[in-house]
Computed example of a mutant assay.
Amino acid sequence: MEHIAADDRKFCTIDEAERGLARREFFFVYQPKLRLQQGRLSGFESLLRWRHPSRGVLTPDSFIDLVEDSPLTGSFTNFIVAEAAQTLVDWSARGYNTLSLAVNLPASEIGQPGLASKLSALLHNRSINASRLQIEVTESTDPGSIEVLASGVKSLKESGVSVAIDDFGAGCWSLTVLHRIGVDTLKLDRKFMCDIQDNANSKVVVEALVQLGQRLGMRVVVEGVETRAQFAWVSTIGHIDCQGYYISAPIGREQIDEFVSRHRLIH
């Protein structure tokens, strides 16, 4: 697992990121998601990495704020969705036709005109079922108009793509936003799991949010499952997905086959 000091981010520049994108220095790693009650692998979340020529592999903490505040945002979105589509093509060729793939896009990108039609054409041209791709909407310092965001989410869902709110509870996502933008999936931020064994209130909050999401017709994903005790507890909640280092750290593309085979989680 790579480690990036917080101070490293100030040394990354827009010019470096633009060159890195052109040179294909950016790539995905994948973190598995389990569907607990069915005991199977439901898919992976793709996580962006930068193989920087002088600083090694960088996580998004080192560059994502820089990119999202720049004209490069659209170029990164195009790269991310194209890579996701190709990944799904590769998985289909291996017989993994039920696996879904989630990618992270900032809220500011979701309302951009033409995103839904671009994704629809990209997936159709590759004979990929659109429901296998999920867009995880990440918070941003300025997500823009909630009405525009809601309209963008609606267009994505109409194209067949699944939409999730990522890291709910970590920042400014509110219950009002949750109600108004109508996503398919609610992902609870990992901080809720940090003290689940020592703080009874944390359990109450997680259970309440799971119930709320499910009553709103959403699938709920619990992030940050790091220990056997946490996994045992979330397994009692019912009809949720979970992900975290107890299940698996993010893995490389070349490790997908081995992971699926070793866990025998697809049926």
Rank of each mutant, 00 (worst) to 15 (best):
G56S: 00
S140V: 04
K118Q: 10
E258S: 14
G171K: 07
L149N: 02
I237F: 11
L47A: 05
L209S: 12
K203I: 02
D167W: 04
D61Q: 08
L123A: 15
S159N: 07
F259Q: 11
L88W: 05
L119A: 13
S162L: 10
L186R: 01
P106F: 01
L72D: 09
G224P: 00
Q197N: 14
Q230L: 03
G74P: 00
S46A: 15
I80M: 12
Y96Q: 14
V163W: 06
E254S: 15
D167H: 06
Q38R: 04
S202R: 11
Q197P: 03
V220C: 08
M1E: 10
L216W: 12
V260F: 10
I165L: 15
A84N: 01
Q38P: 05
D69P: 03
A5Y: 09
I146R: 11
D257Q: 06
R253W: 09
G169W: 00
L119N: 11
L47Q: 12
Y30A: 03
L58R: 05
S62L: 08
L175P: 15
S235G: 05
L101I: 04
A200I: 15
L58H: 10
L115I: 07
S108Y: 12
G111P: 07
R132K: 11
T236R: 08
A5F: 12
D184V: 09
T59P: 03
F63P: 13
Q197M: 01
I135E: 07
S261V: 06
H267V: 15
L149S: 15
W233G: 02
H239L: 05
V210H: 09
V177P: 14
A107D: 08
L99K: 03
H239S: 11
G252P: 04
K191S: 13
P71M: 03
L123E: 06
P143S: 04
A82Y: 05
I146C: 13
S62F: 12
S248P: 02
K10V: 12
K154I: 03
L105H: 06
I4V: 11
A93T: 09
Q112A: 14
A249E: 10
R24M: 10
Y96V: 15
L178A: 08
M193S: 01
Q243F: 01
E25K: 04
H52D: 06
F168I: 00
T98E: 07
N125L: 05
W233A: 00
G160P: 03
W233T: 03
S248D: 05
I64S: 02
S174I: 10
L115N: 07
A170G: 01
A200D: 14
E45T: 03
G160A: 03
G252M: 00
V103I: 07
S42A: 07
L66E: 05
T141V: 10
A84H: 06
A164E: 14
A84I: 08
F27W: 02
R23L: 10
I181N: 12
S70A: 07
E139C: 10
C12D: 05
L133M: 14
H179M: 03
V29Q: 07
D7C: 13
